[in-house]
Amino acid sequence: MSLEAGKIAKIAKPGQFLHIKIDDMPFLRRPFSLHRMYNSNIDIFYHVVGKGTQALSQKESGAKLDILGPLGNGFEIKEIKNQVLIGGGIGIAPLFALAEALVNTSTQICVIIGAKTKERLLCEEDFAKLGCKVQVATEDGTGGKKGMATDILKDILLSLPPTETILYSSGPNKMLAEVSRVANVASVSCQISLEETICCGVGACLGCVVKTATGYKRVCSEGPVFKSDEILLGS
């Protein structure tokens, strides 16, 4: 879905999110990562999974939306030689905006996309068009390599010098936990974008916290992008 939001597009950075009031019902705003940014437009990318996304998908072209944003901290872009982006499922959405920002730097961008089945593989061609080296994995083997995206990641990291490599990831928590573990073993700097139910979106309500080595942190305002070694996923 493409949104015309000039003021936001001007200052938004990959990894940040928009908090959108879709209708009077459901009650809370819904967070969406920035998928693509061009001119005064921002694209968001989502699957219809509940009442909020269902209502959003019914909006007609030209409809007005109440958008709060850009919110949160985005990816910290570093001009390191090897940029590895790994996304699972719809988690690939914010990585595309990141790749768009990275293509202007003199770095090599390698993208790993994972999904359950071939039908669920997203953005493969879009990344390729940008000039990224793309590899895919599906759990059932219907597309790309059979297995997990993190299996490909392990292979790739073997051939890259850790100090000249940076990793960015977005996807289900289970995948992020494995990415963090692999990054840690390989001593590669890694940033992960977390997904949570976001309530206020500005750090006031403390509803969207995640456990870190130094206590709870707010996904909406201290994240959603964190350094992987500070987050305690699945604990």
Binding site: M25, P26, F27, L28, T197, C199, C205, L206, G207, C208, V209, V210, K211, Y216
Partner: peptide, 14 residues
């Protein structure tokens, strides 16, 4: 504070 999840949306409420 308490463990997650901490927020659940309900009918016209939270």
């Amino acid at each position: 504070g308490n463990p997650q999840p901490r927020i659940v949306e309900t009918a016209s409420g939270l």
